[in-house]
């Protein structure tokens, strides 16, 4: 059936999503998401960023039909989210996946395979593949009450993947994982992306997102404040930061750097940072040689995703 389906260009299409909650004993309503319009193209990893309370989880809940939007509509692969069949090609991993504690990892994934419409040998193959992908095959008979938080997260991921979804919606997937688990998750996400899957991932772990996301959307106070590739969102910045070591403060060097439009910032005993335009980097090297200052490091002044995020949400 899957092979016959044509893949639309847009995996998620949201038009003017607004969610308001009534506040007890007050006339005005609390706006969780306000007038959100967003399109996530098929293929690639879309990072949905925002601080706590920005409206990320509410948006995901509306996309999956858990909550009706106060205003607006959304489509998953061109099917309206109100239609249960819209979730046929979607896998979902909640922030903390909860399953009946008396079931084993294998039973949980088996149940989710059945709910995704898989049966027989195809189901068996998918269950084994997914449990192996998340490194839970050896512990498949372990009861969930005995599993650690990270293991439960892995079971959740296997359950989300078992239906071979074209779109994977993940809410803070690395929250329960240790550094090794996070690394494995990044590798798995990259592999899924390379398989042509669309991944919609909500997170506030920006350093991780920067390395894997193709596009990001930044939410703040219920509104989408930026959307594009990480390169489009971060400010390029025309400068470099040069870390130097010198025996004592050199006023000649400082004056010259100031004349070139840069600045000098002391960084402890015998160490300083020079901020200079990138075009002058070779001139600065020459100056350092003349003034007998030791070069430690030269780094680009380009804004990180974290810097951009803080700028956008502040």
């Amino acid at each position: 059936m899957k092979g016959n389906q044509t893949m639309p260009n847009t995996a998620i299409r949201i038009q003017q999503f607004t969610k308001e909650y009534p506040v007890p004993r007050q006339k005005e309503k609390r706006v969780a998401v306000s007038n959100l319009t967003l399109a996530v193209p098929t293929g690639g990893l879309f990072g949905f960023l925002g601080p706590n309370g920005a409206g990320k989880t509410t948006t995901i809940k509306m996309l999956l039909g858990f909550l009706p939007p106060t205003v607006g509509e959304a489509w998953l692969f061109d099917r309206p989210v109100g239609d249960d069949r819209a979730r046929q090609r979607v896998g979902y991993l909640p922030e903390q996946p909860y399953f009946p504690k008396f079931l084993s990892a294998l039973e949980v994934v088996k149940a989710h395979a059945g709910l995704s419409g898989l049966a027989g040998n195809r189901a068996k193959e998918r269950i084994e593949l997914c449990l192996r992908q998340v490194n839970m095959w050896d512990n498949r008979h372990m009861i969930l009450s005995k599993c650690s938080k990270g293991m439960t997260q892995r079971v959740g991921l296997a359950s989300a993947l078992v239906g071979d979804p074209d779109l994977l919606i993940m809410d803070e997937p690395s929250s329960g994982l240790d550094p090794l688990g996070r690394k494995e998750l990044r590798e798995l996400l990259t592999a899924l992306k390379n398989d042509g899957k669309t991944i919609f991932l909500s997170s506030h772990l920006l350093s991780e997102m920067e390395s894997v996301c193709d596009r990001v959307g930044v939410m703040a106070r219920g509104k989408l404040v930026a959307c594009g590739t990480p390169a489009e969102i971060t400010r390029a910045g025309d400068g470099v930061r040069v870390q130097i070591e010198q025996a004592e403060r050199d006023e000649v060097l400082n004056t010259q750097i100031a004349d070139w439009g840069g600045s000098v910032e002391a960084a402890g005993e015998g160490s300083a940072y020079l901020r200079v335009p990138s075009a002058l980097v070779y001139k600065v090297m020459g100056l350092l040689e003349t003034r007998r200052a030791r070069l430690v490091a030269v780094t680009s002044q380009r804004e990180t995703l974290e810097d951009a995020f803080l700028r956008l949400v502040s």
């Binding site: 299409r13 399109a39 098929t42 309206p80």
Partner: peptide, 29 residues
């Protein structure tokens, strides 16, 4: 939904935005 136009074409900003997202998908394909 039979004859639905998903994008409000009367809104040039939104149309451009959605178009750019679609072109990204096409380029990737």
């Amino acid at each position: 939904y039979a004859g639905l136009t998903l994008v409000d074409v009367s809104d040039p900003v939104k149309t451009e935005f959605l178009k750019s997202e679609q072109s990204v998908a096409e380029e990737r394909k």
